[in-house]
Nucleic acid binder design. Sequence first.
DNA 1: GCCGTTTTCGGCCCGACTGTTTTCAGTCG
Length: 573
Amino acid sequence: MNNREVAKVFSDTADLLEIKGEAIYRVLAYRKAAESLSSLGEDINETARTGRLRDIPGVGEAIASKIDELLTTGKISFYEKLAAEIPPTLVEILKVGDVGPKKAARFWRELGITTLAELEAAARAGRLRGLSGMGEKSEARILESIQALGRRESDRISIGVAWPAAQGFLERLKDLPGVAAAEAGGRLRRMRETVGDLDLIVASDAPRPVMQAFLEFPEVERVRGQGETKASVVLHDGLRVQLWVHPEAHFGTALQYATGSQAHNVRLRELALDKGLSLSEHGFKRKTGKEIRCAEEEEVYRTLGLPWIPPEMREDRGEVRAALEGRLPVPVALSDLKGELHAHSDWSDGSTSIEGMARAAAGLGLQYLVISDHSRSLGVANGLSIERLREQRKVISAAQKAVRDVRLLQGAEVEILADGRLDYPDEVLAELDLVVASLHTSLRQPREKVTARLLNAIRNPHVDIVGHPTGRMIGGREAADLDMEAILAAAIDHDIALEINANPERLDLNDAHARRLIELGGLLAINTDAHHPDHIGFRLYGVGVARRAWAPAEAVVNTWPVDRLMGWLGGRG
DNA sequence: GCCGTTTTCGGCCCGACTGTTTTCAGTCG
């Protein structure tokens, strides 16, 4: 079983226990363990084999032994017993908005509902409103939420869609009279791969007109809820947006609160309690009733005796403890990136000439750009034959004369063939400044085979970077089944970098694997895989993943000045 | 069920909003 499958069992266990009415802290313990498992950068089978399950945050004696049982027998007797008691299909109806464990339990016990389809039928038949505490409005909301669930292919949208949408709102909010500041919060600010909605936080001492103006934005289809400080709307395209408006004097605590994650916030509130303070989005409160307001987020952390923690690191993955102990790393920032190491031109499947890409890179202030078009076997992408590759080198030199502000290098994104060989012979690879080796085909091979292909590429002395190592597409194609520990170890052994592909549909490596690589002392490259000048803007998302991985600039090869980069490349093949 | 520079037991975050209520439970983040 893989990490995600194991995590799902524990998250389902938490849901079932909650429906059953178990003590909430027992439920939360299972949920916390599930979250830790899903963000674990190492294969859980390896962690179990080496007896380190208890090192996982939130995994104690009881859950560790259940993980062991699951990995060795394929099931957990505790879960089997629970599932015999509470129908496990009830978990799916918790996805419905306004339906939590209490309602799910009542639908089941009082109406015999066990599945989403049965819940929908009961709502349509008007049978929900008969329950005490439920009326027509509740029933209508539930029905509406079920339909919304069915319409959306997934309940999450890509950060590549959400980010620009949020920026558009923020610009307009900042222009409103009486608005001192506007920021995105939530998963978006933490640079998660996907978000469920947009959380926007505005500082204003006159909240009412700001709220009103927001509700009248043309893309707003309907208002889901509205109070003094919060409003929630649905846009015509189905995107949900939440707006918080707080006075300037609270903006720091409000932004901190709205950024989350929930688990991170719980940690901070626990720390606050240790200091005799109660923390909420409005500020700190002493037992005496005296309040401490924070206009800036830094003040919130300072009050707790902490340095400011970057939003991308706020996932309760040890950042609070690291901050307390003064060993929180400074993660790489967008401004640290000095070059792009993986970009395509119209020589293969890019949209734009080499010179056009060079001008775009120069316009962004990059110091170097590697043109890395596809290799010969990738016919669908117009991969370059050896002859065309050599011809391209001359064109790159000519482009360099035309665009002097950015150093142009010739690379290639070389196919790792199904049998593990590379798509160009070594003597051709040796002619290139930089080699990105990538998998595009036969991603579904068994673990041993696909892992061996990547290892073979890593051992080739000409390969500098492995591109989008797992091949996953978010919400689309599954990652290849790789022995990631072996890949990370080999990459470190051979002093090559693993790519964080910044395309928001890829983000590959993901944050968990990238963090594991950093822990082990490896190197990353943040590459956009640009096929169009605009795609170089994807760097932002790749940096987000690297920051979530706690990667310092030092560990990212394209933050290095060109001389150091060339030295690293030249040290190999 | 987890966890510990106040603890191996006794804690484990806090408030807004909604709908159905006559004061609160449930959900959400």
